[in-house]
């Protein structure tokens, strides 16, 4: 119902969205967040909706290389910016080293927080390939996990850095 109302809205805004290296020309309602646009228009469901207010990190994507909560960004404001979602982190068709380490080390339980954790961790490792534990904790301080207690996530990210 709510979605139908949104789709009926008159005001549209043309944008070029560059997601995982692919260009998409879209006409969108300026109220749509980047998160909604990724999930609903581009059907990239890896980016999750948690709090919708910047607190949980489940919606983290790379915006021009920096990890950012896509729930607080208007898609209309992303015209031409480079966006990378968790789907774009595959390495030669394989899961990213961080993803493999999370699985191997038991850093995943329900998996809801995982895409955000992966994106935040990959951003960290790109800027700092050899982080210490404190730096890993700092990088994922904005990612809430209700299951794991973080310890195994931190171990996994450190292992992936090796």
């Amino acid at each position: 119902m709510r979605d139908n109302l949104l789709r009926m809205a008159k005001m549209r805004f043309p944008i070029l969205l560059v997601v995982n290296g692919e260009e998409h020309e879209l006409e969108i309602d300026p109220r749509r967040t980047l998160l909604q646009t990724l999930r609903e228009e581009l059907e990239l469901g890896g980016t999750h909706l948690g709090c919708d207010s910047g607190d949980c990190g489940a919606c983290t994507v790379l915006l021009d290389g920096e990890p950012a909560p896509s729930c607080l960004v208007l898609a209309a404001d992303c015209d031409g910016r480079a966006i990378v979602t968790v789907e774009g982190l595959l390495q030669n068709g394989e899961p990213h080293a961080v993803q493999k380490a999370l699985v191997a080390q038991g850093g995943i339980q329900c998996g809801y927080c995982t895409p955000g954790i992966v994106v935040s961790s990959v951003a960290l490792l790109r800027a700092n390939p050899n982080p210490n534990e404190a730096e890993v904790r700092e990088a994922i301080a904005g990612n809430l996990c209700r299951c794991t207690g973080y310890q195994k996530i931190v171990e996994a990210v450190l292992a992936a850095a090796k």
Binding site: G57, A68, L72, A139
Partner: peptide, 9 residues
């Protein structure tokens, strides 16, 4: 302030 992700914005 906030966390890394919010600080990017």
């Amino acid at each position: 302030m906030a966390g890394v992700q919010v600080r990017s914005l």
